[in-house]
Every structure is written in C-alpha cells, then in structure tokens.
Amino acid sequence: MKNFDYIRATSVDSAVATVSEPDAVFLAGGTTLLDLLKLDVMRPALVVDIHKLRLNQIEPLRDGGVRIGAMVTNTDLAFNDYIRAHYPVLSQALRSGASTQLRNKATTAGNIMQRVRCGYFRDGISPCNKRNPGSGCAAIGGQNRNVHAVLGGSEHCIAAHPSDMCVAMAAIGATIHVQGPVGRRDIDFGEFHLLPGDTPWREHSLQRGEMITHVTLNAPMHGGRSAYLKLRDRASYQFALASCAAIVALDGGRIRDARIVLGGVATKPWRALEAEDALKGQVATASTFARAAALALRDARSYGQNGFKIGLGQQAVVRNLTSLVA
C-alpha cells in the first residue's frame, strides 16, 4: 500500500478545495475505499476525511420528497420512520445489502460512489480497462458468473454495478446535489452513473474536486406500492445475481403507472422503460408481467457463465410485481 497524507476537513468548502489537488480522494464510510487502498488498487496521495461535516440529516420536504445528507449511514436511512413509511423499496434495498456492521459505517454518498466488485479489477494484476486503460477485460471469456453484467456492457468492460440502494433510488427518482470548485450543481440520478462504452474508467459524471453533499428523492408515486427483491446465492452478505426495484400504482385491476429498475445484471442501475410502458394500462396478470420481464431483458447478452442472469432477471421482475399486486 502506498503512503498517503491524511487531512480531516472542517467544512464543505475546505474539503472541496483540498480534494481538487491531483490524486486526492474523499473518505466517508471507507467501506470501499479502505479495501481498495489495502489491495493497492487505488493509490491516492491525499485522503480527505469528511466525517466531521454536518451532512447526516434526513429531512422530509414540503413537496413530499425527502433530503438525505451525504453522510447518512445506510442503517440510519434504512430504519428512518419516514423512509420506511413512504419509500419501502429503499428501506428494503438497504437492509438487503452487506452486513449490519458495514451498513453502520457505509454512507449514502459512498454507496452511490462505490466501485465494482469484479475480481479482475480488484486483484491488481489482471487485464482491466477500468483499472489500467487499454489493458483489456479479463472478465470477457473469463470467470464472469457472479458480478458481471448482461446489460449495458461493452467490449471494454462488463462489470456489474454493485449497489442495492442505487437500484431503489433509480426507481423512485432522485437528484444528486454536488459542490465543486466552480460552485454547486444538480445531477439527475439516472444520468449520474455512466455506461462503460470505450471509457470504462469513467464511472460517474462528477468532475474533479466535486463532492456529493446530499440527495433529494422525488415524492412517492401517488397510490404506489413499492418493493425490492434481491436474488443471490445466499441470504446475507452477498451481492445480487439479479434484483428488481418495482413501484406500481393500480386503478382497479389495471396498472396506472409503474417503475422497474434492475440490479445485479447491468453495468449501472438499469431502468426498464419499455417494460414500464408495456405495463401501463394493462390488467395486472401473470402474462402481463411476463411480457414486461421479457422486454426488460430483451437486449441482454450472455458472456458465458453469466448467461443464466437473463432468465433470473426476468424472474425477479415477475416475482416482485406479482407480490406487489397480490
């Protein structure tokens, strides 16, 4: 592990000014950063600790939405009374992730920014365009069963996005608020995470020196029911093989509105817009859900061992929708 300097920020402005220096990073919960430092995958010259900044509030808004500070822990967010009552899909997603100890440390902004869990990225020696641009992608044609995508990949990278929380937030609709050297700006949640394309080392739309200060969730869908379903090899401390965040509003037996976002199968939280359109106005039946699930995975591509995720992703959609309308 490379030696680095450490600074504890006393304000957002000082944190932003300091991390604007080359090879500087923010330290929030540290549940990803510290792992990658020890693995010698990330080698910052300076670590800026933002623990002391007052960014740990959860505040309901007048429009029915909610403002979530960047340093709110996953545990506090998951068990917040307002979140559990109005955004059950988010509470469920958070509680399905990692372990109790990690949820107690992991933060909202850190969860949004977490790096992929591809073993070739983390081993420090295999060809990996994300870690070493131009070196290739060992996962294509290699071991790619668990944490590799069938949606949104490219010839340069097929690492799946690891977050459960982000899948739920993408379904709810959210805005990420950042502060940087040139001021503040807002980023739509759906545009924050980037597809790998031919630049897989660019994982998000933050600019150098920008820091997430808070996230605002849209008001809940009127009359909506929501849930998160995570399918994995074991019941705890496991990343999703396939997951589905679903929000559905019914008028009688017909679906008035719907949101479907997939996790575990894509290189970013994957909103299935065609599947949503196919659900609207339809009777909530098994055949309706099956058609929507097929559309959600229509463009999926198997890379060998991970091909089973196509069918599993469809199961996640059908099972979640079926439970919601039961």
Results as ranks from 00 to 15, higher is better:
residue 47 V to F: 02
residue 239 F to K: 10
residue 60 P to N: 15
residue 35 D to K: 04
residue 127 P to M: 05
residue 13 D to R: 06
residue 318 V to E: 06
residue 52 K to V: 01
residue 139 A to L: 08
residue 62 R to L: 10
residue 220 P to M: 10
residue 299 D to P: 08
residue 321 L to C: 13
residue 220 P to V: 11
residue 157 C to N: 09
residue 43 R to L: 09
residue 72 V to R: 12
residue 207 Q to R: 10
residue 253 G to E: 13
residue 140 I to E: 09
residue 239 F to I: 08
residue 7 I to W: 01
residue 298 R to W: 01
residue 315 Q to A: 03
residue 306 N to Y: 08
residue 82 Y to F: 13
residue 168 A to G: 05
residue 29 G to M: 12
residue 196 P to V: 09
residue 265 V to T: 02
residue 297 L to K: 04
residue 183 G to Y: 04
residue 64 G to D: 07
residue 326 A to I: 13
residue 202 R to A: 07
residue 65 G to N: 08
residue 211 M to E: 00
residue 106 A to K: 03
residue 144 N to K: 12
residue 281 G to I: 03
residue 183 G to F: 11
residue 260 I to G: 07
residue 32 T to I: 04
residue 320 N to L: 09
residue 60 P to W: 15
residue 208 R to C: 00
residue 204 H to K: 14
residue 80 N to M: 12
residue 200 P to W: 06
residue 212 I to Y: 03
residue 152 G to Y: 04
residue 140 I to N: 08
residue 107 T to I: 07
residue 274 E to S: 07
residue 293 A to S: 11
residue 64 G to W: 14
residue 191 E to C: 00
residue 227 A to G: 09
residue 84 R to H: 10
residue 261 V to W: 00
residue 157 C to A: 09
residue 271 R to Y: 01
residue 69 G to M: 10
residue 94 L to A: 13
residue 219 A to H: 08
residue 40 D to C: 14
residue 170 A to C: 05
residue 64 G to R: 14
residue 296 A to G: 07
residue 54 R to M: 10
residue 59 E to I: 15
residue 252 G to R: 06
residue 195 L to N: 12
residue 319 R to K: 14
residue 48 V to E: 01
residue 101 Q to M: 10
residue 303 Y to N: 12
residue 21 E to F: 04
residue 142 G to T: 11
residue 36 L to H: 08
residue 129 N to M: 09
residue 203 E to R: 14
residue 174 A to P: 11
residue 19 V to W: 00
residue 321 L to M: 10
residue 68 I to M: 02
residue 255 I to R: 12
residue 112 I to D: 00
residue 94 L to S: 07
